[in-house]
């Protein structure tokens, strides 16, 4: 048996198109995840116990259930409540909510890793809690959590293959469709893997680069 490179070359434009859909849904989910995650992380260290509890429950619930099931709940479950969502929107929302929980824990860890004296010094100068968070704590925390955030983005990009199950023609789904027509499993799946690798490697480089840019005083 031989590796049929021409099959892969023929499939290339379609896989590229699928990869673009993967990038789009992942990028949008990351954006949603970052917003939810930062709010959740801040709520987790918030002096008020009600916010802390709600954020804690959200994180436990999301981390304790599979992303695939969460995607099904949003796409197949919500229509029962009268909410019909486009597959792309449903996938994006499910992934964003899922990622928010993980980002929330990362953000909480980052904030808690900053020495207590930083908050005390900021408050003793008359800054409010929020000003201290914004100008003193978060800028330092973000530098520390970048590697962990990078891991989360990479995991999310790979997990985006799960939305192939709700008929979104992203990279994995595109591969499946091509194989049903060409039967070139090995060629196409290795091509799909290569596409994923290039994308995750790009994220990894971008995170490394930002880490270098954001480091201070060395």
């Amino acid at each position: 048996m031989q590796y049929d490179l021409s099959a892969l070359i023929k499939a290339f434009p379609f896989l590229l198109y699928g990869a673009i859909v993967t990038i789009r849904i992942t990028a949008l989910s990351i954006a949603i995840g970052l917003i939810i995650g930062f709010l959740t992380g801040l709520a987790r260290v918030w002096p008020n116990v009600i916010f802390r509890t709600i954020a804690g429950a959200y994180i436990e619930l999301i981390r304790g259930t599979p992303l695939l099931v969460q995607i099904f709940i949003v796409y197949f479950g919500l229509p029962a409540l009268g909410m019909n969502l486009d597959p792309f929107i449903a996938g994006m929302i499910a992934m964003g909510i899922n990622s928010g929980a993980y980002v929330g824990e990362i953000v909480r860890g980052g904030i808690e890793s900053i020495a207590k004296g930083q908050m005390e010094a900021a408050r003793s100068l008359g800054l409010t809690y929020w000003q201290a968070m914004r100008y003193i704590i978060l800028p330092q925390a973000i530098v520390r959590i970048l590697p962990a955030l990078g891991n989360e983005f990479i995991a999310l990009l790979k997990d985006s293959s799960l939305v192939s199950t709700i008929a979104i023609a992203e990279l994995t789904r595109t591969g499946q469709i091509i194989i049903t027509r060409t039967f070139k499993s090995f060629e196409i799946w290795s091509g799909v893997a290569l596409f994923y690798f290039v994308m995750t490697y790009a994220i990894s480089r971008i995170v490394k680069y930002s880490e270098k840019r954001l480091r201070y005083g060395e």
Partner: peptide, 9 residues
Amino acid sequence: FQSFNLFPH
């Protein structure tokens, strides 16, 4: 403060 607590960034 004893440990200065300057903002390192």
